[in-house]
Design a protein around this nucleic acid. Structure first.
Lengths: 216, 216, 216, 216
DNA sequence: AATGAATGAGTTTTCATTCAT
DNA sequence: GATGAATGAAAACTCATTCAT
């Protein structure tokens, strides 16, 4: 189904097929509920081959997390043009993030839901990626603050919290946009930008963030 | 462990012991990984009694979700004094929310992580609670906007999106605060209040939201 | 449900209620699938009371078999007028048998299906009753043979086989009559009488058994 | 025990071993009382393999019923020489039937007792086989009647009833013969032939059906 | 490079049965 | 005369994992 079945293929290709099947299965069923049988069948190979190439369910899941994490951070990095103003960079990063997660829902489910829900081998794995995104946002904030001001008065821990909040808001909005007819991903991104950049206080007093003209 | 062991107690009491044990186990291990054996043992009863009172693993999990969801919304409602200014009300709500989630990390893990990660009987159960929080925030925004100027220039749909974003940010932050040693509920609430009320733009320019003096 | 619930009653009455519930449950679900819980609930009493009065599931089932076996043999005996011709007596016996089993389908299921299907404590119990019916038929045959002839040339074992065959045919016909629209119990009984008395050989050559005019 | 134990065999062979074990266990213990553990052990394999090949207890039981039903009808069909006189054909059919049930007592117990005692997925399965036997007998009667005189004076419905009665009698007698030591298949067949062909009336007057000389 | 055959250990769930009152 | 509270033992079923080829 999508994968050509059964015939001798180089190891690298087979592995990607297996990871594809695994991400899909883990993303939809969850780590525990996904069975190696289902994954092998979806990949179009026999179970022993999965074990031969990927050792164990745990290793397989870890491989999924790594692949999907890399894909996501790559996408965000690729979407951002360095050197622009902080708000503009944030906007681009969010767009890239939303686009990628919308196009890879199973991968995102693996990273966001499954990996965090199942004990220690995996949570650490996803933390690494998260750290990378947080660093990205952190630098944005720090650099932005330095530009506007002179001192980086925001302590590191505070910045990490802000990044968490931002990602959580983004996730929520993405789900809401999907569930609410007539709300596009772009509108959702604009709402988030308003929220994150201007804040409720400004919004209530009529000072929204203005989205840049033409940027995509 | 906390529960008096083994002998003849009224059903209502036993049920609470079981739910305590279940919330803890589900919160730490996850829905699938938690075994009824472990829950029964932690509750200090035999497995058949758990089934007699709570029917099935699914029903038990649902009962956990309901109990924890009610406890959380009750806590938030109880923490807010109506009639105050919007930012003050939001602040109080967030404090109550983060305090409760910090005091009940397993309950929060059940609601935020486990219930959403494991398919449809459960996700719907959590949505009801979430909706209640969203409505609370929505009204706050609407009232706050009306106070700030007179026209409701924020369209209804935009308000709904902002509320979603705020609740999502809070949820993520709560999980993060629980997982990060040394972050207190109050600090988490302050971080989110800054983010949500002042916005990143203001923060970068050194204009954080100032927490009200005298608040508990 | 039919039984007045919950209030102090003499033991004999309670026992009958329990047996009623048990016969119904065993007859419909089978011995293993019937649960003491279900029986107790249907009887309108608590489980420990069932154990107090009837000791165990096995004893309860045995008590059901005995009660229903006695009821059936009593019904057949009551339906037959001694002293008549053999064919007439057989006809009456069959009518009584059909009537009773049709009116007590659960009891009949217990005797015919469940008791024989489940190992040794029970099969023996039902054999006793069966023996009684076989004796009845046997005597009919023997006496009839003696009347017509002089010697009882039919050996005992042969007679037991004939009785088995007769009961099997009766059961089959009863089920068939129930399942075939437009066939009354009486017609079924007549068919059986034809079959059993005249035999296929005679029937094929146009010599049916003629049912007695006016008999019940 | 009969099956070579434990090592690497083609699926088809293993499946037959499993069915052998299952028929034996179901036939002796009954559907509910038979445990998959016992069946697996008797078959000389582990439980998971039974599930892998036969899916569930229900499916396993159904497979047993189908296999045994086919074996029985095949045996009867193979035992009958078409073109002979009706009584001769009936005699051959009965001999084949009783021989087969005597050689496969567990299979017959599954078909006659267990399958009918345990609700709807199974009862229907047996009905198909039974119908085949009924049709066989029906045609025999019709043809026999046509040979004996010329008019088919036996109405269709009556014939159907007679066939039901005969099959029911045979079924009962087979179970009885299996349970009664010292009764051979041939004796059982003779008893039934007497009963069904000559009828009790003739028997009492000393006119049994005479079995054909030279038949086995 | 790839697989059909096989299982140990664990899961959820049910049930007959008893104890204390 | 009657019951709410409680359990030991076993059942059906699943799954990650390996072996022999």
């Amino acid at each position: 189904m999508g994968a050509v079945k059964n015939k001798r293929m180089p190891r690298a290709v087979r592995e990607q097929q297996m990871l594809d099947a695994a991400v899909r299965t883990f993303g939809q069923r969850g780590y525990r509920a996904a069975s190696m049988d289902e994954i092998a069948e979806l990949a179009g190979v026999s179970k022993p081959l999965v074990y031969l190439y990927l050792n164990s369910k745990e290793d397989l899941f870890t491989a999924c997390i790594r692949r999907e994490a890399k894909a996501l951070t790559d996408a965000v990095r690729a979407g951002v043009q360095p050197g622009l103003a902080a708000d503009r960079q944030l906007w681009e990063g969010l767009r890239a993030f939303f686009t990628h997660t919308a196009e890879n829902p199973d991968g995102w489910a693996v990273l966001h839901l499954q990996a965090r829900t199942h004990g220690e081998p995996f949570a650490a794995e996803v933390s690494a990626m998260r750290e990378e995104l947080v660093v990205f946002v952190t630098q944005l904030i720090v650099v932005g603050a330095r530009e506007a001001h002179r001192d980086p008065t925001l302590p590191e821990r505070e910045v990490a919290g802000l990044a968490e909040a931002l990602v959580g808001a983004a996730e929520s909005l993405a789900a809401w946009a999907n569930a609410t007819p007539g709300v596009s991903a772009k509108q959702a991104a604009a709402t988030l930008m308003n929220f994150a950049w201007a804040g409720l206080g400004d919004l209530m007093e009529g000072r929204p963030w203005s989205p840049p003209v033409r940027c995509g």
